[in-house]
Design a binder for these strands. Structure first.
Lengths: 377, 377
DNA sequence: TGCCTTTATTGAAACGATTCAATGATTCCA
DNA sequence: TGGAATCATTGAATCGTTTCAATAAAGGCA
């Protein structure tokens, strides 16, 4: 690489420029020499360590100025070697292509940033060996904690055993594990399921079709339970002929395809229904596509609800009524949980794992409507 | 946000036993002692260093077995301290909420994974100070290279000067910088612009409306140039009254809103057009929303094209004809470029920055159609 | 004045790896 | 048979911090 030392674009000759040549790092020793104190003192001052209360103010000032003047930047690795703190958190996604992930990531990133932690990113592509390999790499990099966004696939216990043995706090988002070794943050799926159905019921719908989630997903059962409980309490009858189920799949975006296909099958049955409650947003979009193609207008002839409130839900036509998961907040909370554990670990306190259930929120948009003029068959 | 803390999912009330087993690391010294060789030998064997060719096969075997038996994991930080290699790459997004980012990230992650590098993730939220702070953090963590996904906002030169001075190879995706210090990977916007218009032209459209991109975006000008060039060569007249422009904005998702609003304004003008070419997919979706709301059916009355081919494009109703950017490949290529530079740096060779223009691809879906029966006013 | 604190600073030992020069032990030719 | 070349292994320095025990000076108090 040609180094043009023409620092041209910098009219006022702002600092930034390092020494004269080479890219040799500015080390603490440099700061020590420049300021006339020892590296020990420099370390104490720059980290505001406990001993800093004995350091003369004048000394502090000189050291801080020297550090700034030289453009000193602490070396995170060297620092870790002594202090055992990497200021790093592992962030593992089961499958980043799931639109569910983006807001969660935003929440996590933002919370970490506040604490000056840096995330090491991993995407398991829904493959188990990849997941384990990444775990290995994260351990080599000595992440101080682990956050797993488990939107789709299953992890089993044995990987986490390894973690807790190493005393690395971990939290999962969108999944929870048996045992008390790993914290988790989830939406309250049962309440969410109830909300969606209650909304349709309030609009007057009685012939309602359902597309349940894949059996392998932890969300499927509680959502359905919420549905059943509400139906029971409201005296609503669920026609088994209108209940479909997505097949298991390793692709988080398979819901669209699945919703589309199942809805087509449903329409062929010629059974009447005025509303359809889909497992998640993508499924709902697939269903809408199928309905529209068959000439059934949404929401005029049939109302449709989703679940999650991914970005697409607001942009689709018609925009989707859905049950929102507070995804960003879930990310934030997961970070707070592991941060708390890290702190506890440093102070040699014990910490408890927590299992947090967040409240969902109904977001009413254009895909649902009063039953009055609805009818599809 | 109220959260129901369901901490009681712990029937046996286990206190999450900590400490007892210690989490003392297995170090290289342990492997050395167990195998009966010196740490030096262990290092040489485990890294397959040049000197390894002198090591007796039996020795290698014993060491490798000991390492496996003890569950030895090299300490990335300690390793860095001597070797200066962190096996880490900084990955900075201007704004991760842009759907553009997900496939790019997939490509980057995957390519890094192949090389056993680990990405440190940063999201600038389109804020300059955040960008700089992250840069600082990444330097503290001694990333070996930097990849910047510059989908939306502007970076200026002075931040990169710092980088190249430190000999850290960098590549941008979706943006390019003046000078020859930073590599870049972009789509060929001009060709893409031409493709979209050519497609509409081939379908017989002559009255075509345009929503141009915000001036601040580097993509806007070349796409428009492609449009103009094609129009000129095909003898197509562009009616200035049908050309709109998105305002500058710091929100990568503002296109939807903008496309919606501009299209409404366009419709109010009562000028005839049978097709609309939008700056990107979100803009196109916004436009479709406005058209549909006004009773103009897409594609029956008006064809619409997007640009990018984000995930949503395939799922919207109607699905969107668009110009695809090979996002995943762009990510992969950026990684390959910086990896090449890293290698060159290690071997003290010089390396060249590269400016790569990827070919876009026309993806024809349901939002465009033969002009025959089209007409909107 | 002498002894005990408190204040201010530092030397030196880690931390866990890598790497180079050095050391023995073999083998090879001439 | 002996010196060179090759093979096999290692001691010790080093990377940039942190941290603890040690030192030195100054202040307090009887």
């Amino acid at each position: 690489m040609d180094e043009l030392w023409q620092n041209d674009g910098n009219p006022r000759g702002l600092p930034l420029k390092r020494a004269s040549g080479k890219n040799q790092m500015v080390t603490m020793r440099d700061v020590a020499e420049d300021s006339g104190f020892s590296p020990a003192t420099v370390s104490i001052v720059l980290n505001n360590a406990p001993l800093a209360r004995y350091i003369a103010p004048a000394t502090k000032k000189r050291i801080e100025e020297a550090a700034k003047k030289l453009g000193y930047r602490p070396n995170a690795m060297a620092r870790f070697l002594r202090s055992k703190r990497s200021h790093t958190v592992g962030l593992v996604f089961f499958d980043i292509t799931d639109p569910f992930c983006t807001p969660v990531m935003r929440g996590i990133e933002n919370a970490l940033y506040q604490s000056s932690y840096v995330p090491i990113f991993a995407d398991a592509h829904n493959q188990r060996n990849r997941f384990e390999r990444y775990l290995e790499m994260l351990l080599e990099h000595h992440v101080e904690a682990l956050i797993v966004v488990a939107n789709w696939l299953v992890v089993d216990i044995h990987v986490l055993a390894d973690l807790s043995k190493r005393n690395i706090p971990a939290a999962t988002i969108g999944w929870e594990l048996p045992g008390d070794t790993v914290s988790s943050v989830m939406v309250d799926n049962e309440t969410g399921g109830r909300m969606a159905l209650e909304h349709l019921h309030q609009l007057g719908h009685r012939k309602i079709a359902f597309i349940r989630g894949p059996k392998m997903l932890i969300d499927s059962a509680p959502r359905w339970r919420g549905v059943q409980k509400f139906a029971h309490s409201a005296g609503l009858e669920i026609d088994p002929g209108l209940v479909l189920q997505l097949p298991d799949s390793f692709d988080p975006n398979s819901g669209f395809e699945g919703g589309h296909r199942l809805t087509e099958e449903l329409l062929q049955k010629k059974k009447k229904f005025t509303a359809l409650m889909a497992f998640d947003d993508l499924t709902a979009l697939g269903a809408i596509r199928a309905l529209t193609k068959a000439g059934v207008k949404v929401p005029e002839h049939c109302s449709v609800t989703g679940f999650d409130d991914v970005a697409m839900a607001a942009l689709s036509a018609p925009s989707l009524t859905t049950v929102r998961q507070p995804l960003e907040a879930m990310g934030t909370n997961a970070v707070n949980i592991v941060m708390e554990s890290i702190k506890a670990g440093l102070e040699k306190r014990e910490w408890n794992t927590v299992r947090q259930k967040m409240n969902p929120e109904l977001v009413i948009r254009d895909s649902t409507r009063d039953v009055a003029h609805s009818s599809a068959d």
